[in-house]
Amino acid sequence: MPREKIANQLELASRFDEVARAEREVIGALQAYAYGETDVFAIKLALEEALTNAIKHGNNLNPNKRVKLDYEVGPQAVTLKVCDEGQGFRPGDVPDCTADENIERPSGRGVMLMNAYMSEVQFNDKGNCVTMIRRRDN
């Protein structure tokens, strides 16, 4: 197990294939700390949803805009920060996808999944950066 936290910043193009590259690197760090399947599933899902939102809704797939991922993996917790170059949004305005009237709506689950699988989720005031923390599942 590493002595120091594993941390890095990645700059991604606004393309979906960049998501897999970022996930590979973060999952590699999780494996170095022997995180279990439940943690890996949760962190991969939250990261995928945050990056997809940033690329698709934040940067509108604009090839001139970038997405930044800062991650820090330690023995007991993982922190992910995803920022795009878009106008931002208000997460409180996203309809509750678990409400009876929204269950069969195809879209709008990304933010809910991030909240459901991470210990803490915090957006900045502009709404173009999200910081997520997951504490290790013991």
């Binding site: 599933f41 995928e48 949803e49 997809t52 999944l113």
Partner: peptide, 17 residues
């Protein structure tokens, strides 16, 4: 399948409809 994300869920919902 070990992993599924929101856009794949969306496709399942659309096909269910």
């Amino acid at each position: 399948v070990q992993f599924i994300a929101s856009m794949a869920l969306a496709e399942l919902i659309e096909f269910h409809k």
